[in-house]
Simulated assay, not measured.
Amino acid sequence: MGTALSRTAVELAEILDEKRAKNPVGNALLDATGRGAVDEEALRRLVGTEAQAHRAELASYGTALARFPDRPAADLFIQLAQLVAEAEPKLHACARALGMDDPRSPRRPAEHATYAFNGTLSWLAVTGSQAAFALASYTDMRVYFAGCKEFVQRVRQAGVDLPPEFIEYYDDEGSDDLRRLALDVVQDGLDHGDDASDAVFCARLLEESIGDFWRSAAGTA
């Protein structure tokens, strides 16, 4: 797929779907449910990994907004930041329900995989094109919400008792409107000359870092 090829945002999303089908990144947390290896500590690891990501997300969306302040990009980055900011108190309620005073102190889990997503997202916010960052954000929403929702469903089917706060936080499909907006921002970037192949590369890179996120939560990193 060379840069001379003309691609739409929807086509790039389809290319990522094909990559996902042919070479899945995998979700170690879902694999753990199949082995019956999910306990309360696994839930705490997920919350802890999530908490470490929030600050990086807020800073990254702010950086992207500063670099791409025009609409529709500005609308996307503001809404993504708002989504994370509104999730913060819910995540802290989830942590308290699991006996965690502060999911960020001490740093937990304390391994490289916990911070892989943060590093990739931050790097993309600083160096990525509008199309690349927006397609990565779209991929994040596609993969993360589906993975969390399936995890909750599997754990509940296995008879594991989940706090209501955990279910409220993680049993969420995300927003179709926000995903569509992300593709609109990708298309706007492509229309202004952004490199389609680079956008796919960056989005896949972020998806691979979400694989590290799952590994951190599962304790298999």
Results as ranks from 00 to 15, higher is better:
Met1Ser: 14
Gly2Ile: 02
Gly2Gln: 06
Thr3Pro: 09
Thr3Leu: 14
Ala4Pro: 00
Ser6Tyr: 00
Val10Ala: 15
Glu11Arg: 08
Glu11Gln: 15
Glu14Asp: 14
Leu16Arg: 11
Glu18Ser: 08
Lys19Leu: 15
Arg20Ala: 15
Leu30Met: 07
Asp31Lys: 09
Ala32Ser: 13
Gly34Trp: 02
Gly36Asp: 02
Ala37Asn: 07
Val38Asn: 06
Asp39Glu: 04
Ala42Asp: 03
Ala42Glu: 06
Arg44Ala: 05
Arg44Pro: 00
Arg45Gly: 01
Arg45Ile: 00
Leu46Thr: 01
Gly48Lys: 02
Gly48Thr: 03
Gly48Ser: 09
Glu50Val: 07
Ala51Gly: 10
Ala51Ser: 11
Ala51Val: 04
His54Val: 12
Leu58Ala: 13
Ser60Gly: 12
Thr63Arg: 15
Thr63Val: 12
Thr63Pro: 05
Thr63His: 10
Ala64Gln: 12
Ala64Met: 14
Leu65Ala: 10
Ala66Phe: 06
Ala66Leu: 13
Phe68Val: 00
Phe68Tyr: 15
Pro69Gln: 04
Pro72Met: 09
Asp75Met: 02
Ala81Gly: 15
Gln82Ser: 13
Gln82Met: 10
Gln82Lys: 13
Leu83Glu: 12
Glu86Cys: 00
Glu86Trp: 00
Ala87Leu: 08
Glu88Gln: 11
Lys90Phe: 04
Leu91Gln: 09
Ala93Ser: 13
Ala95Asp: 10
Met100Lys: 04
Asp101Val: 09
Asp102Asn: 14
Arg104Gln: 10
Ser105Ile: 13
Pro106Tyr: 06
Arg107Glu: 07
Arg108Trp: 13
Ala110Gln: 11
Ala113Lys: 11
Thr114Ala: 15
Ala116Pro: 02
Gly119Ser: 09
Gly119Tyr: 10
Thr120Met: 15
Leu121Met: 10
Leu121Phe: 14
Ser122Met: 05
Gly128Ser: 07
Gln130Lys: 14
Leu135Glu: 07
Ala136Lys: 06
Ala136Asn: 06
Ser137Tyr: 02
Ser137Val: 06
Met141Pro: 00
Arg142Ile: 11
Val143Gly: 01
Tyr144Cys: 01
Ala146Trp: 04
Ala146Cys: 03
Gly147Arg: 01
Gly147Ser: 05
Cys148Lys: 11
Lys149Gly: 05
Val152Gly: 03
Arg154Cys: 03
Gln157Asp: 14
Gln157Asn: 09
Asp161Arg: 13
Pro163Cys: 05
Pro163Thr: 03
Pro164Trp: 03
Phe166Asn: 03
Ile167His: 08
Glu168Arg: 12
Glu168Gly: 12
Tyr169Phe: 15
Tyr169Arg: 05
Asp172Pro: 01
Glu173His: 07
Gly174Arg: 02
Gly174Phe: 01
Asp177Gly: 10
Asp177Ser: 11
Leu181Lys: 08
Leu181Ile: 00
Leu183Phe: 02
Asp184Pro: 00
Gln187Tyr: 01
Gln187Val: 00
Gln187Gly: 03
Asp191Ala: 14
Asp191Gly: 10
Asp191Ser: 12
His192Arg: 15
His192Ala: 15
Gly193Ser: 08
Ala196Phe: 05
Ser197Pro: 00
Asp198Phe: 05
Asp198Arg: 11
Asp198His: 10
Asp198Lys: 10
Val200Arg: 09
Ala203His: 06
Ile210Arg: 04
Phe213His: 10
Arg215His: 09
Ala218Met: 06
Ala218Leu: 04
Gly219Arg: 09
Ala221Leu: 08
